[in-house]
Design a protein around this nucleic acid. Structure first.
Length: 401
RNA sequence: GGGCAGGUACCCAAGCGGCCAAAGGGGGCAGACUGUAAAUCUGCUGGCAUUUGCCUUCGGAGGUUCAAAUCCUUCCCUGCCCA
């Protein structure tokens, strides 16, 4: 592949690049010097949980690795502690080093489902940020204007709406940008919502006399609700290390209108293949089948084809034919006789007795396929019974007295 | 430092002495239906007890009152204007 082909390959599926010419230049130089490019990606310590949305960016990063470049993952342990500029300024709990270490282990287990360990470097930004003096900080702040900071949409909006905007939030992008200076990043990747932040890094590098990084943003994947971007805090995510049944099931729960987008962003389908999916949907193919194909495809990426098939079959069993799942969680009950409401709370299927009574009245509680209507029902557990709440919560109660 | 407007349940937001566990919307959960955990429609959405009941919750702490989210005092927090 020549340099231009490489560049256009790397450009596939991206949202935006600043600038392509610079990317080509960097690729050329790297080839001449035979040195890998440093591709920076910021990650957050607080939620060590990788979902399909973030995977969009990681998979792009992987392409760089496949070409021999180095992924530099910046763990935002410093910026994480000063609070996120995304609205309310609840002070984050200070993470201890031990906690961070533990989180990182979990994180690595997930991230190397996509990235290549031998081409991945981890850097903690506290390494350099903790050492900045007040003088350094003022110096850094003097390289960027308030007006430019306020270009950022959510800052501008909050000011306009009379909502609080704190000093530390304004500084946050500077620290994040300074990370690029500290590691001398050649390229920085991020989600489309990070575009502005990445530009700050570019500017600061220029100010510090470095060649500015190329920035590449990836499209945002909407969550399972089909509206907001996929995020752990919106609880609309599909985690790449979730069990196959969960990944498949959650995929089935996306709105039909999202099917094509998901094929595009969450699978390795080529443009032609995605078009074919769109065509079939338009031609009146059952969206359910397309979603099933999508779910299987995603499970296959992070597990195997067999797991994908099994997940699909299990889904049909449980939700279409309303059978009980093949594998059930078990709960050993000490009492032989117990009130239904107490049982539901004790097993944590429901959070409170009032809620349990409500759900019984709604007909959401099943005992071995029967729906009790009386909250005073006493159950005698002589043999295992299957307790079900709603469509998805199952529990096998085993006598243990 | 001064003036004004605000702080209500997971979120937004009404209420401004009793009829307030607190309207409405969002979100969440459930039921029906179905092509699925899609869509749509309907119900529920503080806890405990269960006939009326009790407890916790309207920024914090005190107070007035038979009775407070609602009135008073004070403190904390946010925004706007002035300095």
């Amino acid at each position: 592949m020549n340099i231009n082909d490489t560049a256009s390959f790397l450009k596939q599926g991206i949202q935006e690049i600043v600038t392509e010419a610079e990317l080509v230049k960097k690729l050329e130089r790297r080839k001449k010097e035979n040195k890998p490019l440093k591709v920076k990606l910021g990650i957050d310590v607080s939620g060590p949980y990788i979902h399909l949305g973030f995977a969009v960016v990681l998979r792009k990063l992987r392409q760089f690795q496949d070409l021999g470049h180095t992924a530099v993952l910046i763990v935002g342990d410093f910026t994480g502690k000063i609070g996120d500029p995304s609205g309310r300024s609840k002070t984050r709990p200070q993470l201890t080093d031990a906690e961070i270490k533990k989180d990182m282990e979990q994180y690595k287990a997930q991230i190397f489902k996509i990235l290549l360990p031998e081409h991945t470097e981890f850097r903690f930004n506290s390494e350099w940020s903790d050492r900045l003096t007040s003088r350094d900080l003022i110096g850094l702040a003097s390289k960027y204007t308030v007006a430019r900071i306020l270009e950022r949409e959510d800052f501008a909006q909050r000011l306009q709406q009379g909502l609080p905007l704190y000093m530390h939030e304004i500084l946050y992008p500077l620290f994040q940008g300074f990370d690029s200076v500290a590691v001398k990043a050649d390229i920085e990747l991020g989600g489309a919502d990070q575009y502005w932040n990445l530009l700050v890094g570019r500017e600061l590098q220029r100010e510090f006399g470095q060649e500015p990084q190329v920035i590449i943003t990836m499209p945002l994947l909407a969550g399972t609700d089909g509206k907001l971007k996929m995020s752990k805090s919106y609880n609309n995510y599909i985690g790449i290390t979730e069990p196959p049944n969960e990944i498949y099931g959650k995929t089935m729960s996306i709105p039909d209108a999202m099917i094509v987008k998901y094929f595009q962003l969450a699978t390795n389908y080529t443009d032609a293949e995605v078009k074919e999916v769109a065509r079939r949907l338009k031609a009146g193919d059952n969206p359910k089948d397309m979603k099933s194909q999508l779910g299987k495809q995603i499970v296959k990426m992070y597990y195997s084809a067999e797991d994908a098939e099994a997940a699909a079959q299990e889904f049909e069993r449980v939700f279409k034919h309303k059978a009980t799942p093949t594998e059930l969680e078990e709960f050993i009950l000490k009492e032989r006789k117990i009130n239904i409401v107490e049982l539901l709370v004790k097993t944590k299927l429901l959070p409170s007795k009032t809620e349990a009574r409500r759900k019984i009245a709604e007909g959401a509680v099943y005992i071995n396929d029967e729906r009790p209507t009386d909250s005073n029902l006493e159950i005698i557990i002589d043999e295992p019974i299957i307790l079900k709440v709603g469509k998805r919560k199952f529990l096998k109660i085993i006598p243990g007295y």
